[in-house]
Amino acid sequence: MSVENAPVVDVDEAAIPVEKKMYYRFESNDKKEFRVSELAIQQSETLNRLVEAMGYTSEDVENKPAIAIENIDGKTLKLVFQWCEHHKGEAIPVDDGSVPKIVEIPEFDAKLMDIDNGLLFKLIWAADYLNIVQLLNVSCKKVANMAQGKTPAQLRRVYLLPSDEEDEAAKRAAQEAQDPRAREVEEEFEERKRQGGNSFF
């Protein structure tokens, strides 16, 4: 197990209230360990509820095994916790349901998300899984920005969307896989039509 002993970002001790000065330990699915402040954890509804339910003391945090986050790898989790530490103490935005949703990407977040699309993809999954509302907002905004100025054909390429023809072909393939006889029946029907018969029976 590789352990990253230091917090993922520098902590301003003065800025953190004494009673909040507890660091939890989390472990990614590739066995990377992270220490995250209690205040930063509050950005994640999932983790916040988890640690509240666990009711760990400072001793428990040190003595018990790190809390495992099974489906997020270390590289992604590092980004997540860096984001949480940077935004700790900030209010969690409340969705007013308006469309289009106005989301500004702060400079720190833009730099944090200056990553390849594969990692961005994982970061969004992680933000969704850990229920980090604002991280989900900014990361989805980054994906939405990819649509700017694109034509429908370009959007198909960018977002890997199947065309109508590809959808049709996939649907036919799925039907055939489900019922191999269907194709034969269809061919037989076409053949009878060609021969001038108007009834299948």
Partner: peptide
């Protein structure tokens, strides 16, 4: 993953809904 592509509909439902909502 390639620099030019992003599989929008392989994201969780809530996430691609968020993408839609910011457009």
């Amino acid at each position: 993953p390639t620099p030019q592509t992003f599989p929008l509909f392989r994201l969780p439902l809530l996430a691609w809904l968020e993408v839609f909502r910011t457009l």
